[in-house]
Design a protein around this nucleic acid. Sequence first.
DNA 1: ATACAAAACTGAGCGAGAGCAGCCTCCGGT
DNA 2: ACCGGAGGCTGCTCTCGCTCAGTTTTGTAT
Lengths: 249, 249
Amino acid sequence: MEKSSLMTIQGSSIARKLGSFVALSETELAVLEDLHRRRRSFFPGRDLVLQGQSGQSAYILASGWVCSYKIQRSGSRQIVDFQIPGDFLGLRSILFRTADHSAEPITTVEASEIHARDLLQAFGQTPKLATAVLWAASRDEAMVVEHLVNLGRRTALERTAHFLLELGSRLKLVGLGTNEGYDCPLSQYLLADALGLTAVHINRVLRELREEGLLTFKKGRVTFDNFDALVTAVDFDTTYLDQDRPLLN
Amino acid sequence: MEKSSLMTIQGSSIARKLGSFVALSETELAVLEDLHRRRRSFFPGRDLVLQGQSGQSAYILASGWVCSYKIQRSGSRQIVDFQIPGDFLGLRSILFRTADHSAEPITTVEASEIHARDLLQAFGQTPKLATAVLWAASRDEAMVVEHLVNLGRRTALERTAHFLLELGSRLKLVGLGTNEGYDCPLSQYLLADALGLTAVHINRVLRELREEGLLTFKKGRVTFDNFDALVTAVDFDTTYLDQDRPLLN
DNA sequence: ATACAAAACTGAGCGAGAGCAGCCTCCGGT
DNA sequence: ACCGGAGGCTGCTCTCGCTCAGTTTTGTAT
């Protein structure tokens, strides 16, 4: 029963997310709800989406964490983003013939599987939904862009702090975090692959952040020791996340 | 007359681009054509889109080059992408309340201005167009993702070569380049801001690429001296660009 | 021809982060 | 109670790319 209530909360979470941009009618909500038909569970080690494969599905995450990454022939890996409950995942892999990235569960994951056919048909029925999904995709792109700035123009310390702040903001939106901190199942290896650093160096950076009294990452929990100082220290600007006022009715 | 024929070519270039994913009917093409009403010229130094401003327009580029960038409070700048003829530009700035990035012309630019209202209305008329634009946005995101991998997991040399190869592929698609090379109006400073390096270091990297007999970038022209060696040297994979087979009719 | 600015290029020194090698700690399985 | 493995942590060395401080070249206006 705890699980089913969670599922309801998350089911509405995606609707709330999309609805915050485009006011959705009952018909559209029903279409959206219908997409949630195929609920599935996934476990760490078995990828949800596989780079280079075709005929992949997309998912809407109900619970758990997923990471999307690209792997190179050399073996090195770049994590593009982590998906948290309420997030879309693998949208590009159904629009494109071949998936250009992989996605793997970090924790146990509950997600609704979405087939390309269903989604594209839904767009035909309610164009507003298409606009809403376009908006959601743009928001994702905005996050990738910020991640890009992170890698291109910030030091390891700023980069790490900025990233953990962003995760905090996103988790707050779905009720999984506060300005105090949040539960975070990421290992230092995962963090390293996301931030373009080595795990060894992430470790030192985390130590420094702790010693500076800015934030503590220990035992699966991120604690903001001085939120305001952190925000100014790394020039954190949430504009790209706060795009939540309906534009269109 | 040379100019008007160019405009026709480019006007159809966006239609071809979108049509390659979703087969567009005459009605849809007409709606798309109608978006091209407001043709405008822009010149270097005056931004097309300004970070932090609201009520911005989007554009479809007919000729010239534009760069999209984010600037930080510290003054350092990260170029997210260059737009070339046929590209969309500033889509996020009309979907979001506030533009999260800036865009400035690198050369003289011809572009069609697109208002949020018109685009969203067009979606209502022809949902297929919405799907096509979603696809185009996803392709853009795929490029940003590849750029992210570039910054996170490649050396300065690989990064530079990969980036110039990607530009080449994109220009080839709109008939502005071949596997021999292409005209490229970018300064070493712009390249540096795109690749998260300093102009000084870009200079050394270009010299090395030249000395290795891989590529030459001189006087506004990129020449691939050994295309195949280059492609294998930097593990260049065009999957994320070659998504051009219609999925939906 | 001359003047000037922007872009291209070079050299010397330095530092952030990588690479390597190894130890510690926690936790689940038998 | 013991074992094994994954994740966390540390020290040392080295290198890639930055910084600073120039000079040279190219293009444009006079």
